[in-house]
Amino acid sequence: MTLRAVDLRKEPVEAVLDHVKRSLGVCVDQETVVRKRRSVGARTDRNTWVRIERRGLDRIGVQGGDGTASAEALHGIAKPAWLAGVAWRDEREPVVWRADETELLPAAPVGSAVVTKEPWLSEEWWTAMNASLDALAAQHTNRIATPDTETLTQELVTATIHSVFSGVDTEVVDWSPAHADFNWANVTASVFCVFDWEDWGMAPRGLDAANLWGASLAVPALADRVRRERRDDLESRDGKLMTLFVAAKILGPYADPGDPRLGAARETAERVVKELQAG
């Protein structure tokens, strides 16, 4: 059966919310429901948050789609605690639904995934972000990151980069745990916290930093700050590859001509290509 493309911002989700209510024993506050392309979230009557995700069976892989629950084993990272979860297979489609109940966030998300206006972020915020990313990278897991639900392999890195930047040696040497969807919609301020852990796992060094840089390119000062804060990652060889990996997604065949990030992504990528070719 072919998996139907679905945008949960447009699909009815009442039956899914009812299933979660029965399974987790919570009532969902309808006024707080947040709908995204492949997930729905809402506050509960227990002063917790429930996030519900739809994922095709072909995107489950060996990890089972339990990213938020498995991230509870990570330490030293500012994130909401995981409390409970439930998963079930859709009766009509080759799809798995999963709902995870977590603590409420300590503050609001910074913005949309890609920002066009510089957010106010304190020095304490940047310190907390760095501490969390450093702590994450120092840990160990058998999980493999799944950015955009695709398993992050050497082959995927090579294909993505070479779709825009041919002739680059794309061999990755340093793999470490990453959030894999680290953008401005998944971090909070004024208190730093990172959430939505469904895709975390092993990834080339610098993926999270490169993702945040790519999400900041419409605000040059913010993109520069991200590069300064995560300099060690982004100036490593694998970090440069991840810069190209993210830039290729911005500049590739599905690029939006109106994307305000295009010029900055191309300029940085061209410099990075030269650095990699120079050895």
Rank of each mutant, 00 (worst) to 15 (best):
E267N: 12
E11L: 09
L217Q: 11
P94G: 04
D232V: 08
A138P: 02
T2I: 10
S112P: 00
A81E: 13
F182Q: 03
T268Q: 15
E270D: 15
A210K: 04
A107Q: 04
E53T: 14
N183F: 01
P109E: 06
Q30N: 11
Q154A: 08
L207I: 04
E14P: 00
W125S: 00
R237N: 08
V28S: 02
P253Y: 07
E267M: 05
A189D: 05
I144A: 03
A84Y: 07
P147N: 01
G279R: 11
G67S: 09
K274M: 13
L276N: 08
V194E: 02
F245V: 00
S122L: 10
L133I: 13
D134R: 14
A265E: 08
R46A: 12
T243G: 06
R54P: 01
Q30L: 14
S163T: 13
W88D: 07
G25F: 13
H162K: 11
A255F: 05
A138Q: 13
L104F: 06
V173R: 13
T102S: 13
P119E: 10
L262D: 07
V28T: 10
K249E: 14
D256I: 09
E103Y: 03
G214H: 05
H162M: 05
T160D: 00
A247Q: 06
T151W: 05
P94C: 09
V272S: 03
L262H: 01
E11P: 01
P12H: 03
T149K: 00
V191S: 11
G67V: 10
R230N: 14
K249G: 14
E93P: 00
R271C: 06
K117C: 02
T32K: 12
N130W: 12
V13R: 08
L121C: 11
R55M: 10
S216G: 12
T141I: 09
T68P: 01
G41I: 01
L3Q: 09
E91W: 09
M1L: 12
D199W: 09
A189W: 11
P119F: 11
D174I: 12
R92T: 14
T151D: 02
R9Q: 13
C193P: 00
P12C: 08
F195M: 03
A99H: 10
R9E: 06
R59K: 14
E118N: 07
E14S: 14
R59N: 08
P204N: 07
W175D: 01
A69S: 12
S176C: 14
S112Y: 10
Q139H: 07
L8T: 04
E91S: 14
A265V: 09
G56I: 00
V173D: 08
V96Y: 05
V110G: 05
R46D: 06
G239L: 06
W97V: 07
T153Q: 07
S122D: 08
A178Y: 02
Q139E: 12
P253N: 03
A108E: 15
A87F: 03
Y254E: 14
K117E: 14
A78M: 03
L262G: 09
T268R: 15
R55Q: 13
A42Q: 01
I60E: 12
R228C: 03
E14V: 10
T268M: 14
I144R: 10
S163M: 03
R89Q: 15
W125C: 00
P94A: 07
D18E: 13
L251E: 04
I60R: 10
E155F: 04
D199I: 02
W126H: 06
